[in-house]
């Protein structure tokens, strides 16, 4: 009997990232991309935003949002390239490139947040 695949790990991160992005990304776009630029709600002050971003819970949220979002994107990119360009035989290489790039992004995220 062949072993059970370790695909569970990237898939669960993909799922968690999909949830984060689908649920929270529209809120960010609505606030900072539409409502604030259009002047429909008052723009927060720089000091106010800085205080918010400096809060550990905000940083934890931003880390989860960015890291899981990147890993979600990597998984989707791996399968899109593999299926659309018929590169199934290069799946391991695509995985290394896609998840590797995402992990670099995660490292940059940590660097920015610490």
């Amino acid at each position: 009997m062949a072993r059970r695949s370790a695909e569970s790990l990237p898939w669960s991160l993909f799922g968690a990232g999909g949830f984060m992005v689908a649920f929270f990304f529209p809120i960010h776009i609505l606030l900072f991309g539409i409502l604030i630029p259009l002047g429909l709600i008052a723009a927060p002050t720089h000091t106010g935003m800085l205080a918010l971003v400096n809060h550990p819970l905000t940083r934890l949220y931003l880390f989860g949002f960015c890291a899981l979002g990147l890993l979600h994107a990597a998984h989707r990119l791996r399968f899109t390239l593999s299926d659309m360009l018929r590169l199934k035989h290069l799946d391991t290489l695509l995985g290394v490139l896609a998840y590797g790039a995402a992990l670099v992004g995660v490292a940059v995220t940590i660097d920015l947040l610490i």
Partner: peptide, 15 residues
Amino acid sequence: RLDVMAQHDGVWDCT
């Protein structure tokens, strides 16, 4: 059955 389905050739290719 999970032993079969959780293998690389099981359900993981489904997008």
